[in-house]
Design a protein around this nucleic acid. Sequence first.
DNA 1: CTGAAAGCGCTTACAG
DNA 2: CTGAAAGCGCTTACAG
Lengths: 340, 340
Amino acid sequence: MASTIKDIARRLNISVSTVSYALNGGPRSVPEEVRDKVLTVARELDYRPNRVARSLITRRSHVLGIIPHRSSRDLILGPFMQHVLNGILNEAELMMQHVLIFTRCDEKDTAGTMDQFLGGHVDGLVFISSDGLEPVLEELRHRNFPHVALSARRGASPTVTVDNVNGVERAMAHLYGLGHRKIGHLRGIPTHYDGWERHEAYSDFMRRHGLPINPSWIVDGRFTPFDGRCAALKILDRPDRPTAVFAANDEMALGLLEAARELGISVPSQLSVVGFDDSPHAALCYPRLTTVRQPLNDIGAAAARMLLDIIEERDPVTSLRFGTELVIRDTTARPTEDQS
Amino acid sequence: MASTIKDIARRLNISVSTVSYALNGGPRSVPEEVRDKVLTVARELDYRPNRVARSLITRRSHVLGIIPHRSSRDLILGPFMQHVLNGILNEAELMMQHVLIFTRCDEKDTAGTMDQFLGGHVDGLVFISSDGLEPVLEELRHRNFPHVALSARRGASPTVTVDNVNGVERAMAHLYGLGHRKIGHLRGIPTHYDGWERHEAYSDFMRRHGLPINPSWIVDGRFTPFDGRCAALKILDRPDRPTAVFAANDEMALGLLEAARELGISVPSQLSVVGFDDSPHAALCYPRLTTVRQPLNDIGAAAARMLLDIIEERDPVTSLRFGTELVIRDTTARPTEDQS
DNA sequence: CTGAAAGCGCTTACAG
DNA sequence: CTGAAAGCGCTTACAG
């Protein structure tokens, strides 16, 4: 059986309060010799403080909760989640917090979900995506429970987002500037806010420039290379295929590149491709991917910091939006004459 | 203020025990009408059970702890961690457990580290790597605290490992079979058990086949593409470069491919490359990477399951080793005549 | 200055 | 069958 402060107190014939104060170095001061004795006995007994008992009183666990996005039955950790999580973890470490990932998060069972979230295991929550979780966010707001959402509509809950509209604008303007007029889109999950916003921005650009939006040039995918490949096959394997495709993220663009290779369509000479994210592999694949960079690590770190600010009732910052940058590499070029 | 079972009990003039039994549906039975009233009031008061209070008594948090490997000051979530974590999360979900990632894990401060681990936040621990944490594992064993280690020497603590020796053997035999005799190695962190074991297996193969081991053909890296590129540059940018290189993981192999491209060395005609992992990008890069596949997701899932088995004192399974498979793609070929 | 006691929100033996 | 009580391991006002 593990030892407790009671055991230490008994051994030294002092009160538990003194032991507690000695162990924590405050707030009440303890004579140095007593403190030393407590520390010695603690070591002898292999004492480890029970943080759960403490957090029952202090109402702080020093753990940040993460709610991953679930694009299907199982949880897929793509580069987006990977790098955002990396940012969260590094920032959490600096702030001396741990990170708990909630696995079960049934959209239909709001009550059960709330039970998990509010059970005291975490001091606050970072939602990787708000997709399907509006009722949960709503209740969290109502209960005033600290939370931050990525990929969510700005306004209601505190958010850390990326400027999708601006990012897509850069990508599309680049393609348009090269001479592309027939531009397709590998769309993300439409209920996913970023996916939705990028598609909106794409459509908006096409309309504004009087370009034809061909429905068969727009196919959905769940942000994976596999989905990207399948979707790309549908778009590219037809006589009236577009001369360029903008993919909602790099993973799908990678799948698109693969599909093009399979169909013998050479990139960028016969097809231009732009992705979104600038995940590390965008620079390692071949041809190297032209893409819209968003600072995934920084977004994660900012979300973690904002969450702790809310938990500790500091600044009233409630939303942050990161800019993007177009990274031109080797998958984009002018369309060839006969294509236009 | 959030409501508690006391509030419910007071409202209905019944005891907290009855409320507790009603809410939990047992173990004591409660008349249906009382149960209904309790549930109604609970809803009215927006009652959420405090799981921390419960876990103080039951000594179960239903949370599995993860200790990531830290290759440098900050935590790097490469594909290895990504897919292992994915396996852990999916399995944890099936087992109704959440997952807590420990951010702070100072190798020098064993006591402080143990405080975190044993604080009651988690029921057990999965170590992504044992690198630098032997003293911690030792104490965990001594205290009989449930834990499982990946990338660790089999024997002391329960482990889930991959058969590195066999995997490397396949990779090397493939290169040797193609006619390669001058084979270099992009080595992982030597204190990392998998990295160490792969290097041992590489050396062993070279020796057994009477091949020359040239120290300048072996360079270390921390498993990242960036390190792979730097290391590869050292190996390749010299007159007596090897005709093939075996990289300790795919990420470094990807960096190697990039370095070769920069140096104008064409793969596979002038240089053969084999990686390890078969992470998704191995099939998406160009040329597609020949590599040793290990079932990362399954390894994570198995570790999670083994941990819960230990926590709940089921089977006495204490170690599991997964096999590998050579996936031949486009980065390996016979060496050209003039190279031999 | 230090000890006895209340209490965090639960679960569960123990009485009645 | 149900309530009063003890207790999980702590923290911290409250007495002395």
